[in-house]
Simulated assay, not measured.
Amino acid sequence: MWRSLRPIGRSDASGGYRRYAWTGADADCRLWFRMQAEARRLDVETDRNGNQWAWLGDPAAGDAVVTGSHLDSVPDGGAFDGPLGVVSAFAALDELRARGVSFRRPLAIVNFGDEEGARFGLACVGSRLAAGQLTKEKAFELRDADGISLPEAMEAAGHDPESIGADPERLARVGAFVELHVEQGRALDLSGDPVGIASAIWPHGRWRLDFHGEANHAGTTRLVDRRDPMLPYAETVLAARRAAELEGAVATFGKIAVEPNGVNAIPSLVRGWLDLRAADEATLSATLGGIHTAALEHAERHGVDLALTRESYTPVIDFQDALRDELARILAGSLGKVPVLGTGAGHDAGILSASVPTAMLFVRNPTGVSHSPAESAAEDDCVAGVRALADVLEDLACR
């Protein structure tokens, strides 16, 4: 499975992946998912929001056990973030069948659409729509860097955008959702454990800062006459780092757009996107406040206007104690005491946690690197993850 998935959407130049929502690479990933499901005699369907489901048993029976993740990527992302959970889900089903177990609850494997938000700027679009956390109206406003709207992209890929929206009936069929994911940090590497259990997802969000200045000639405009938005933007990037260090948060400016974007032109607009995460909402709020205040001060000093827009926000998510503790009990027999750890990364499991009982398993990442071609996981650890997931699914769906 891993060998067949690995080439899809891979850039020869960077070695990373460019699997963006509703593109050719995304279509190839969806075809791969369908082929894997059909090879295992699973019933495949795509829901109204573009999420793929592969069913063993009758979905209408309810109380289903669901596992899976996503197949899309960030720009030049790694091979494991998302796909490891989908590959492991199919492999866990193979393991359960090899064990000869009988299923008493329906089982589904899911591939959520547009989890990374790389194309339209909002993460977890597929699961947010299903859970009613993103309205159809707001979804229709999303546009990519080329100005193509989400509904236009969906329609071009053969999906009806008019059908998107909250899907409570589908989620009501789910009794538990367990997502396996490569760890996006080094906690397991430092503890020496191949597998961990998630305790919570940090609150996190994305904000857009628009610095509006005045376009002018780079060679003839005196420094004192300039209203250059690049200067307060650059100073705000440094201020964000200082604020995050002070509050114990993490702040990142990883995307920027400049107009008119000419080498010999002073910009009229610098637009930067801030990714901000912290262990609790008070810390996140304090860090954002510090960054915003600094940005306003720098903008005013350079004669530049500033607009701050929140594009997405996810509050702290504590995974359900009962299901989390059940996973720990199940895995104690084979792995002993499994570490429980929080994460600063967002996931579909976090979005669904408000609607269905959810839990997460992490597989060790020896470097801690993620959202990069250097992202990795050892084969032995991946196998340990599959066996752990199979143990969990067997206990939840077969006993």
Score class of each variant (00 low, 15 high):
248 G>Y: 10
197 I>P: 02
379 E>V: 15
32 W>K: 05
210 D>S: 08
122 L>Q: 10
87 V>F: 09
227 R>T: 03
163 S>V: 11
111 N>D: 14
191 S>Q: 08
140 F>Q: 15
336 G>S: 15
268 S>R: 10
308 L>R: 11
327 L>R: 14
80 F>T: 14
34 R>I: 02
303 G>S: 03
180 L>G: 01
178 V>R: 02
369 V>F: 01
130 A>S: 12
85 G>C: 14
80 F>C: 07
80 F>Y: 12
217 H>S: 03
208 R>W: 00
286 A>N: 15
50 G>M: 11
229 P>G: 09
258 V>D: 09
184 Q>T: 03
308 L>S: 10
286 A>E: 10
150 L>D: 15
369 V>T: 05
370 S>T: 05
351 I>F: 07
197 I>H: 05
232 P>L: 03
39 A>Q: 13
223 L>S: 13
16 G>V: 03
110 V>R: 00
25 A>F: 01
208 R>N: 00
310 R>P: 11
348 D>F: 09
202 W>C: 07
291 I>D: 10
29 C>Y: 03
101 V>N: 02
340 V>C: 15
126 G>Q: 08
232 P>H: 00
148 I>H: 13
121 G>E: 12
19 R>P: 09
168 P>C: 12
144 D>K: 10
165 G>E: 06
2 W>T: 05
201 I>V: 15
380 D>F: 00
347 H>D: 08
51 N>W: 08
109 I>M: 11
218 A>H: 07
305 D>L: 08
164 I>Y: 08
272 G>N: 08
38 E>Y: 07
389 L>D: 04
87 V>R: 09
123 A>K: 04
